[in-house]
Design a protein around this nucleic acid. Sequence first.
DNA 1: TGGGGTTAT
DNA 2: ATAACCC
Length: 451
Amino acid sequence: MERAEAGAAGSSLVHDQVVPAGSSSSRVIVHVDLDCFYAQVEMISNPELKGKPLGVQQKYLVVTCNYEARKLGVKKLMNVRDAKEKCPQLVLVNGEDLTRYREMSYKVTELLEEFSPIVERLGFDENFVDLTEMVEKRLEQLQSDEPSALTVSGHVYDNQPINLHDILHIRLLIGSQIAAEMREAMYNQLGLTGCAGVASNKLLAKLVSGIFKPNQQTLLLPESSQDLIHSLNHIKEMPGIGYKTTKRLEALGISSVRDLQTFSSKILEKELGISVAQRIQKLSFGEDNSPVTPSGPPQSFSEEDSFKCSSEVEAKNKIEELLASLLNRVCQDGRKPHTIRLIIRRYSSEKHYNRESRQCPIPSHIIQKLGIGNYDVMTPMVDVLMKLFRNMVNVKMPFHLTLLSVCFCNLKALNTAKKGTIDYYLTPSLSTTSRSGKHSFKMKDTHMEDF
DNA sequence: TGGGGTTAT
DNA sequence: ATAACCC
């Protein structure tokens, strides 16, 4: 659909437009992408790091680094040894604890939600915002006696000229102004810089946000969308086409975006299934009708640690550590998880992705004690997790794990108890005074006395 | 490859 | 429960 309208670009009068205002076929989407996010958070925590080449380390990897480090040859996900070799002055900070990154990440999302509530998170450092409605409102308010009212903010992809008689151009231009305001607010209120891309769908917004890097923004006009997608050197660079699909496409002789565009739809559907085939072939044309889905609060909380583990005692200690952190997080969230999952990774040379998991409902008597801090929820939870562990790992046989992870999911708002019902008065978290939800949980803090 | 997340099957 | 995707 979006392709069809792009063809009508020659028309210059607003009333020529086939697309009615506010139609779902013409959207304004912004993708906001923070610059080297973890490194920025670290430089805010410790301003002495500013100006120095900085890497954030997890285990033996530099997972991200600031631009000073990049200039000196450090890359994302580079081995610490290689990074130090390339850049001996590199300063490293440990980034295995994501707490501060996660908190800052949600501050960014919340700031963006003030512009429009339709904000979708992608990882900790990217957000999509659907600006369609906001742009419509600004268009209605527009008094065209101010000359600056219709000036684009930031770059335009390919330097394509804007046609002020083309309503699609005007809407995207206003989107670029909102994007600039968002970046200003992020900097003024949170001290963070980032890039933004404005386009008519999520795929194109995401691709175009990376064109001018760091701390810049780019607008994509519909006439340039084919140039943008063909600027990709390989289909693996297309968001939505991952490792597995890339391998299967390569086996079919498909490696460029144009290969995918021109490949037989029928054969692609046979090979990948109709759903994936149709979706990725549309992506290859720059078409993406997926909505910006408001993320809201997280669907799950998890903590993981990669480490060598070959005994049940080691496993139990790690599980207690992971669980203690999770309990603090869940406590602050206010909602209660109803399912718990244990994930392991077994040591085995090959096998790209090998993880196994077991999950079970959290016993209701434990759920009730969550969030009020004073009852010992650790011991019964650890018991549950160790049962899951023994269900996956035969502890009577030698084993070697390289990762343990604990996940709380199936989060429910509060409990369904309503004021005035029996349930309400039988529910400790509701009928007692404790409603702050901010009790810290310390692992080795032995006895938590009863009320 | 880390330490997270999501949705679909 | 796993598999795919994203960062």
